[in-house]
Design a protein around this nucleic acid. Sequence first.
DNA 1: CAAGTTCTGGTCGACAGGACCATAACTTCC
DNA 2: GGAAGTTATGGTCCTGTCGACCAGAACTTG
Lengths: 254, 254
Amino acid sequence: MPTKTRDPGVPAAYNPSEFPAFAVTVDIVILTMLKSRLHVLLVRRGVAPFEGKWAIPGGFKRPNETLDEAAKRELSEETGVDSASLLKQFGAYGDPGRDPRMNVVTVAYLAVLRDVGAVVAGTDAAAAALLPVSEALTGKLDLAFDHARIVRDAVERVRVDLEQTGIATAFVGPTFTVAELRAVYEAVWGVHLDGANFRRRVVTESGWVIPTGRRARPGAAGGKPAELFRAGRMWKQGGPIRHPQSPERGKGNQ
Amino acid sequence: MPTKTRDPGVPAAYNPSEFPAFAVTVDIVILTMLKSRLHVLLVRRGVAPFEGKWAIPGGFKRPNETLDEAAKRELSEETGVDSASLLKQFGAYGDPGRDPRMNVVTVAYLAVLRDVGAVVAGTDAAAAALLPVSEALTGKLDLAFDHARIVRDAVERVRVDLEQTGIATAFVGPTFTVAELRAVYEAVWGVHLDGANFRRRVVTESGWVIPTGRRARPGAAGGKPAELFRAGRMWKQGGPIRHPQSPERGKGNQ
DNA sequence: CAAGTTCTGGTCGACAGGACCATAACTTCC
DNA sequence: GGAAGTTATGGTCCTGTCGACCAGAACTTG
């Protein structure tokens, strides 16, 4: 909103044509776990510019909706998923020339989902796919526009939020094993966590996970069937697991 | 950017008139320490709407500059300060009707400065002032547009960043005492920190603060003169002080 | 039944972090 | 000039957390 109250030249009522007009879009980085690796939902562009390249889904904001509503609508249109609680705004991008056709400012959202696989399979397989974020981050896929940077920022945000918020439970289903939850942390952070210590942390204190009494069927390799839990209320106030290297602040110099 | 690749109706080259046009502005929440309290720089609006109300400074983004550049330019125009390193984007706001005149999407930036007092004194005193954030947060000041929400989000961001980044040193001058630095944490978090423990944390391990050999003059109340330090390189990798309540996660329930 | 795999609980030591005390070095006031 | 007050700075102790590691439980497949 204009707040240049001290500029004498500003009229009392703006004429929109006097100020640069922008298109405002909302883009969504949809992340999910697949085969113990972090994946991102990408669509293949069918029109110029960047025709044939991968891009993250998005669309124009409408004047009569909020940014959050626009993101929710786009997510629903794109995947059919209707869960607004996992949508989080994490950045705005407005470099000149980022869209060669016109001035576009985009507001980027992060969505963490489970079971996107079925959704993607239902759409045109050639137009949408789940791809490992590692490939997008290392530049193996060159994405359209500045979407590589947006995806990078989104993943960085997830890495931080995993420690500070309860975003971890958004990656798993309504019921899950401790090992599934641990796999989320290990995949996002790229570290190995001790299974026993991890379990102690989330199971010992009540509020994090609630036992359902049921057990999961072991995988193909066998093993003891794991307990099935559901998420407790404590995840609303941040996650229980800290990044391994984070407590060792101040080291590594001298 | 438009990525609705599967929509058949999208032409290869957009006609800007076919899509809703928005004005894009950049607003800056400028925070500083004054009398051991957190203050925000506000300007008094001279024109409708919200004439006479307080607002945070900002202005229109130009088509040929990035959002970061626009924020830097506005900060310079508003305060004369030319330090881009302390500018951080923290949110975008685009609710319909947030500006009664036209569709405006604003991208909000946070700037942490010291010595804004001299800058404010130099401008028209009636048009700009440093006010305690507590008054803006509690609703004592009713701000223009949705600026109350924006200020609230900015302060929340600072509270988090104080723990995770080296933003604390941006509040103090090039040389500072340990007590000055501690006052920043205490003011932003609203807690009391033990002076001895605080000092041990930042002084013991090298890299956080570097002694200058000089001493500050005691305040009006007297006391032992404090050592003067300057910021070390470790602040680039996060702050050394943790929020007191943050390690006690998972308590308070059962 | 044997071997392999995963889950789950236990122990132990290192260490960060907070509470608290004591002393040093300056001020102002009488 | 001394007393009282204030702030800075260093020391000690104690508690809780967290990771490494071990051992047993419970299932798989062959």
